[in-house]
Write a protein that binds this DNA or RNA. Structure first.
Lengths: 152, 152
DNA sequence: ATCTTTGCAAACTTTTTGCACCAAT
DNA sequence: ATTGGTGCAAAAAGTTTGCAAAGAT
C-alpha cells in the first residue's frame, strides 16, 4: 500500500481550495485513491479502496465527492459499457482505449486524436471533448480471439 | 406513421432466418422500428414505438430481442452516458458523434476513422471496433455554450 | 411435437435524493 | 456561527432473470 499524501494529491487539493471548495476526509481519500491508482476506477472501486482506511465513508458520499470534484474540473469520467463509469484525475490528459475482450484500459496521449479532431471540426463542426470518450476495440492480446466477449 | 415491412426490414428478416432464428412479432416489430427510425433509439424508445401497434410486447422482450439480434449480428449498440444504450441496425455501418450539450447523435462514415484506426493498430496493437464507439463532444449549435450540460 | 420466445413480476446494479446531523471554514 | 458535506435509508433508472404459458417451426 502506497503512502498517502503524495505530491500529486497535494497539488490537486491546492486547486480544490483555490476553487473555493472545502477539504473533507472523503475528498482527500478519493483524491488520494485516484492519484495512487495505476488503473482507472469505478465509483464502486473507489468505495472499496477508500473504505479500507475509512470504513464510514459511504458510497453515496463517493458519488457526491466525484460529482463535486468533476464540477471543480479536477476529475473526469468516461463511460464504459454497461453504464459503469470510470473516473480519473484531469491533471494528466489522455484518451482511453477500452478492450472489449478483457476490459483493459489503454491510455494514449491526446495528440493521437489531433487529426481526427481537426477532421471532425472541419467536416461536421463537431468539437470532440478530449479525455472524455473511450474508443472500443480489442487489445493485442485479445485481437486474435474471434468472439466479442460478453458486452451485455 | 410510415408503412411497415419495408425492403430494408425484409432484408434483415431474411438474414435472421438464414442464421437460424425464429421470426416473431416482437422481432419483426423491433426490426421495423429500427429500420424506420431516422435517429437512434434506446430500448425504452423502442418499447414505446413497438407498443403503439403491439401493446402486449413487454420491455423485457425488447431487451431480449435486441440481445438476440445483436448475437445474430443484425443490430449493434453504442453506450452513451448515464447507462443508456442506443441501438441500430448493422446494415449501414457508421460511427457516432454524440453532443454532450443537446444529446444529438451525428453519424459519420466509417472512413473518417480509417487513419486513427491505422495509427492505433500500429502504435498500440489496438484494433478499434467500427460502429461501436461514440465520440463525445459538442455539435455546432452547442459549441459556443460554455458549460457542459448535465452529464450526470 | 419440439424447442424457442414471450409476458409478467420480481430481482439486480448503478446512481441519485431527502433529511437530519456533523464538520470545515 | 454559518454553510456545505456526510451518513443513512430509500427511491430511481436501466437492465436482467425465473418461470410457466404461448408461439414458431
Amino acid at each position: 500500500m502506497a503512502e498517502a499524501g503524495t505530491e500529486r494529491t497535494e497539488r490537486i487539493i491546492e486547486l480544490l481550495r483555490e476553487r473555493g471548495a472545502r477539504l473533507t476526509n472523503a475528498r482527500r481519500a478519493v483524491i488520494d485513491a485516484l492519484a495512487m491508482a495505476r488503473s482507472h476506477l469505478t465509483a464502486d472501486d473507489l468505495g472499496v479502496l477508500v473504505q479500507q482506511s475509512a470504513p464510514d465513508i459511504h458510497i453515496s458520499t463517493i458519488y457526491r465527492t466525484l460529482d463535486a470534484l468533476e464540477h471543480l474540473g479536477l476529475v473526469d469520467h468516461v463511460h464504459l459499457g454497461h453504464g459503469r463509469a470510470i473516473y480519473h484525475l484531469t491533471d494528466q490528459p489522455h484518451q482511453h482505449l477500452v478492450c472489449e475482450g478483457c476490459g483493459a484500459v489503454v491510455e494514449v496521449p491526446d495528440s493521437t486524436f489531433a487529426q481526427l479532431a481537426d477532421q471532425l471540426r472541419q467536416g461536421y463542426s463537431f468539437t470532440i471533448r478530449p479525455s472524455h470518450f473511450a474508443v472500443l476495440g480489442r487489445c493485442a492480446d485479445c485481437a486474435g480471439v474471434g468472439k466479442i466477449a460478453s458486452d451485455h
